[in-house]
Design a protein around this nucleic acid. Structure first.
Lengths: 344, 344
DNA sequence: GACCAAAATGTGAGCGATCACATTTTGCCG
DNA sequence: CGGCAAAATGTGATCGCTCACATTTTGGTC
């Protein structure tokens, strides 16, 4: 590989002049610059990022921590963030892991930290991630896509709590009075926020709650929970008339189980999801859900990284509110329309 | 940030001894090692990756190029590859982009190349990626997840062609004689392979082909194509009795459209997907599809990178064959069972 | 206890860039 | 055409580490 001296020699200038051309600083006569450019092209020269990072003391690299299965939300956020980072002149070094246990997390963060990353970005907020980070002495900014408002952490989020309230309020507005929740896994900050929002909305409507059923985010788990609920009579007559699922994947699993159990959606039971994955509009029935703008989240993550790096004040938390998308999976509970007419 | 000299000073040894401890080479007395370790911990010292890369001449970093929407297959492969890379002691620098135009691709590759990556890994094989790479003088190994057998490129793949034949053979075996194909977008190497497999299987069964309908991989596009096909009479009586979709997402869109058009699946039309995303088992009806092991693909990508880097001979192409997963979306064509009984 | 190989540790150069500063050229003016 | 500031270019140190090699300790033997 050619280095800056080779280029300088070929162009008949000093290495410093080459550096000036590379970084576009100082004054270089046009014809000199042309000679240097030609030499660069001829040698297929690229400045060494390592040497630059060493002397500049900054790597222009960000560490991205992603956990769990390849779900739509995290993946979208990751891609959007990556693009935003590149646009801002930063590289992104990724550390993903299937499991979210503390050991794997510590390892992954260690690798990133050993890489001179200037900031760490956590995409899937899991308490294990924060535990791991708390155990390490990290002296670079930490930016997370989460909404619980932790200490010493820049966070950017879509308001999961508000989104959950929106979903439940929609069901309440339709007349549902017993609304179950299929939650995301323990440890997930977002899942916890959605549970909190569901509870809060039930409370404010004076409706009874019951413990959320915990799932894994995956369709299979929604299916199994659906079988269970249909089987033990929690749903349908005498049971709940609506289910708020913490994500769309679990909702499709639930829909499947309800169909097999002969429970009609939305006639017997209404179902609401969360995320609005691209497939949600094509579920049977099309799923009412809470839309999150993951692309925007990714961009805002990067903006926050820049602000944190710049040492500027970052308005925290920077949150946006998701919106409800009404589709065919929700309707008034059985017999409700009649009742609302007879007693206005 | 502390450097190696600070550690040496605190431990009362030379910087070289610290280096020996860090890299676990040479001989260091246990008590000396302990003093050094203590100093490292006290100063929260981490060796500078930049300095190491500079002096060693290798960055231990791989460049990952991912394009397009956050689909299940690419995301899974990416995560699996990332984990495998970290396990092998490599870091992964990611460059993703929403669009696959040549300009964006060239930019992205340029950024990675400027980062001393030791190899380039292309996850979503798109011709634009290869065009961009061809235009650049890249002198590091190039590993792609694709199966077309290009020159000067290490490739690892799941045999898309074989998978497509499997899907179509299944339909043919059920008795279908007119089988449409909803293909992935132009430019996608995998999509092209699936088209090729579909054609080949039709040919070998002596069945008539028709041009594939081109989609975008997304559910919405499957839905629109489904509306079109249902509307123009391509499906159902007098039309085709089966559709092979190039991925599961388009299949769910298609199922939705067929349902709205009053076409029953599998009674009137059979549908086969590709990928076996976790939701496919919970479509209505559950989708017959071709399962790909993306986790394995990711691991094999990394194995190939290591082989390429080691200069060793890499058996090329390293392919695995996907498997068919039969579910309720496929059945014999209308009236077929009767016919097969009357004329055995 | 002198000797000596093996073990342990130290010294200085150099990776490839940037930075701070020194030096040479250039162009303009009187 | 000499003088002189501005423009253009060059020189050497430095970032933090590893490498090659030099030097000092150590422990066992006669």
């Amino acid at each position: 590989m050619a280095n800056i001296t080779d280029v300088a020699k070929l162009a008949g200038v000093s290495h410093q002049t080459v550096s000036r051309v590379l970084n576009d600083v100082g004054t270089v006569r046009p014809e000199t610059r042309a000679r240097v450019d030609a030499a660069i092209r001829e040698l297929n020269y690229r400045p060494s990022a390592a040497a630059r990072a060493l002397v500049r003391g900054r790597s222009r690299t960000l560490g991205l921590i992603a956990t769990g299965a390849p779900l739509y939300g995290p993946s979208s956020t990751m891609l959007a963030f990556n693009e935003a980072a590149r646009a801002a002149g930063y590289r992104v070094s990724m550390a993903s892991m299937a499991s979210v246990d503390l050991g794997a997390m510590v390892d992954a963060i260690d690798v990133l930290l050993g890489q001179d990353v200037e900031a760490l970005v956590v995409i899937v907020a899991d308490v294990a991630a924060f535990d791991a980070l708390a155990g390490l002495r990290v002296d670079i900014p930490l930016v997370a896509a989460e909404s619980s408002g932790r200490q010493g952490l820049f966070s950017v989020s879509i308001d999961q709590y508000a989104g959950a309230r929106l979903a439940v309020r929609h069901l309440v507005g339709l007349g549902h009075r017993r609304i179950l929740h299929v939650a995301g896994p323990r440890g997930s900050v977002d899942a916890a926020e959605r549970v909190r929002g569901w509870r809060a909305e039930l409370d404010s409507a004076g409706l009874p709650g019951s413990p959320p059923v915990v799932g894994t985010w995956l369709a299979r788990s929604g299916f199994e929970i659906g079988e269970l609920l249909a089987d033990d009579g929690s749903l349908g007559k005498e049971g709940a008339t609506a289910v708020f699922c913490a994500n769309d994947q679990m909702a499709i699993g639930l829909l499947h189980a309800l169909h097999l159990a002969g429970i009609r959606v939305p006639e017997d039971v209404s179902v609401v999801g969360f995320d609005d994955i691209p497939e949600a509009a094509h579920f049977r029935p099309p799923l009412t859900t809470v839309r999150q703008d993951f692309h925007d989240l990714g961009s805002r993550l990067m903006a926050t990284v820049l602000a944190a790096l710049g040492g500027g004040v970052v308005e925290n938390p920077a949150q946006t509110t998701p919106g409800l998308v009404e589709r065919a999976s929700t309707a008034p509970p059985p017999g409700y329309a009649a009742r609302s007419v007879t007693e206005p």
